[in-house]
Amino acid sequence: MNRHKIFIFHVALWLLIWATAWIFSGGDSQFAGENFMALLFQILVIAILIYYTVPQLLLKKKYVAFTIVSIVIILVITLILTRIIPNSILGIEGEMGRLPRPGPRPGPRFEDGQSLSGNPRPPSRFFINVLLIAIAYVIATLAEIFLFAKRKEEEIIINKNVALQTELKLLKSQINPHFLFNALNNIYALSAIDSGRTQKSISYLSDMLRYVLYECEQEIVPLYKEIDYIENYIKLFSLKSSKTYPITTSFSIENQNVQIVPMLLIPFLENALKHSNIEKITGTFINLTIISTTASIDFEIENSKPEFNVIKDDVGGIGIENVKKRLAILYPNHHELTINETSQAFKVNLKLQLNG
């Protein structure tokens, strides 16, 4: 909301307040005449606040200067409203041959000058005007503080979203080179064994690259595309040997078009392939299960653990820490990641609530 709109809002607010007070006074013309100038000076002091003291002092954190200037403005405006304006009006009326209105006649008094009626003196017009001007000024100041806090909150949300998007892009940039590195390593190993299988692996790699380069640019993708990528990854890995790797998959998908963020599940498979010593075949296993409904996805993968640690390539996988970060950003409070590790197996279970 720009300053002109804020000013118009305050003018409309005080017009409404004074109109309501005038209606409750019975539509008295004298009430309107006596308070019309107060309304004009309230508008004046609000304009000074909105266009000068707030942007030049308050928002620049010059709090002492803002307080002093505000007090001076309120007192000067009140003096003009109470002393100068009435005297000017009386002077104009005198020039036109009209006498000022007589004040109230003094009532009977005691000998010492005290009034017999005992009624307290009403507050002075200066005091009333100070209250009217100060109330308008304070309300406008509180409104400005509220709007400023709201703008700051919106800026924080926007900056946070930008930071999250930047982090997601960084995480994606970590995933894609790692995928390509692993895939090329697999093809290189296969080329020394069987050229026919090498052609198949290149075909699988082509499909996978198409998914990574084009589909993964989207924030979400259909689940079936993520599953196709996982299947191609396993096929590409399996072509490394003429033997059948003990890898089992089970997919129970209620709706293949249910949406998921891309490349979220593959790090778990990469981790399992790397640390299960699956190439040994005997005594090893990888079991992968995906069960999906329209409201949730349940991903589970379990792999064997070798008796002794197997030394792999120097370049480590992206790992589960990457996935945890993405889950915290993309599925906050709508995911459950459980990791169980024993001496024989490593098991990961991820539950995603898609309605969130």
Results as ranks from 00 to 15, higher is better:
residue 220 I to G: 04
residue 139 I to Q: 12
residue 172 K to F: 12
residue 154 E to K: 15
residue 157 I to H: 13
residue 204 Y to W: 07
residue 140 A to L: 01
residue 165 Q to N: 15
residue 160 K to A: 11
residue 205 L to G: 04
residue 153 E to P: 08
residue 134 A to Q: 07
residue 223 L to G: 10
residue 188 Y to Q: 01
residue 153 E to A: 13
residue 212 V to D: 06
residue 162 V to D: 15
residue 174 Q to P: 05
residue 180 L to V: 14
residue 222 P to I: 06
residue 209 L to A: 14
residue 222 P to R: 05
residue 198 T to V: 02
residue 175 I to M: 14
residue 172 K to C: 12
residue 138 V to I: 12
residue 150 K to N: 13
residue 205 L to H: 03
residue 210 R to L: 10
residue 164 L to G: 06
residue 151 R to I: 04
residue 181 F to M: 00
residue 204 Y to A: 06
residue 201 S to L: 08
residue 223 L to R: 13
residue 134 A to K: 06
residue 146 F to Q: 08
residue 202 I to K: 00
residue 211 Y to N: 08
residue 202 I to Q: 01
residue 193 I to M: 02
residue 151 R to S: 11
residue 212 V to G: 03
residue 190 L to T: 15
residue 156 I to P: 04
residue 193 I to G: 03
residue 170 L to Q: 13
residue 181 F to Q: 01
residue 133 I to K: 01
residue 196 G to T: 02
residue 215 E to A: 11
residue 137 Y to H: 15
residue 182 N to W: 01
residue 204 Y to E: 09
residue 177 P to W: 00
residue 205 L to S: 02
residue 136 A to G: 07
residue 172 K to W: 10
residue 151 R to C: 06
residue 213 L to P: 00
residue 198 T to P: 02
residue 218 Q to V: 07
residue 152 K to P: 08
residue 204 Y to D: 10
residue 176 N to A: 07
residue 147 L to R: 00
residue 198 T to H: 00
residue 164 L to M: 13
residue 174 Q to E: 14
residue 132 L to N: 14
residue 187 I to Q: 00
residue 202 I to L: 04
residue 183 A to V: 12
residue 152 K to S: 14
residue 204 Y to R: 07
residue 158 I to A: 10
residue 194 D to K: 02
residue 156 I to G: 04
residue 177 P to I: 05
residue 218 Q to P: 09
residue 182 N to D: 04
residue 186 N to T: 09
residue 212 V to K: 05
residue 152 K to V: 13
residue 144 E to T: 01
residue 199 Q to M: 03
residue 163 A to E: 15
residue 208 M to Y: 11
residue 199 Q to R: 03
residue 193 I to R: 03
residue 177 P to D: 03
residue 175 I to D: 14
residue 183 A to C: 08
residue 194 D to L: 01
residue 222 P to H: 09
residue 190 L to V: 09
residue 137 Y to E: 08
residue 133 I to L: 07
residue 172 K to L: 14
residue 206 S to G: 06
residue 187 I to A: 01
residue 177 P to S: 03
residue 175 I to R: 12
residue 171 L to N: 13
residue 147 L to A: 00
residue 204 Y to T: 05
residue 208 M to P: 06
residue 158 I to G: 03
residue 204 Y to C: 06
residue 145 I to H: 01
residue 180 L to Y: 10
residue 222 P to D: 11
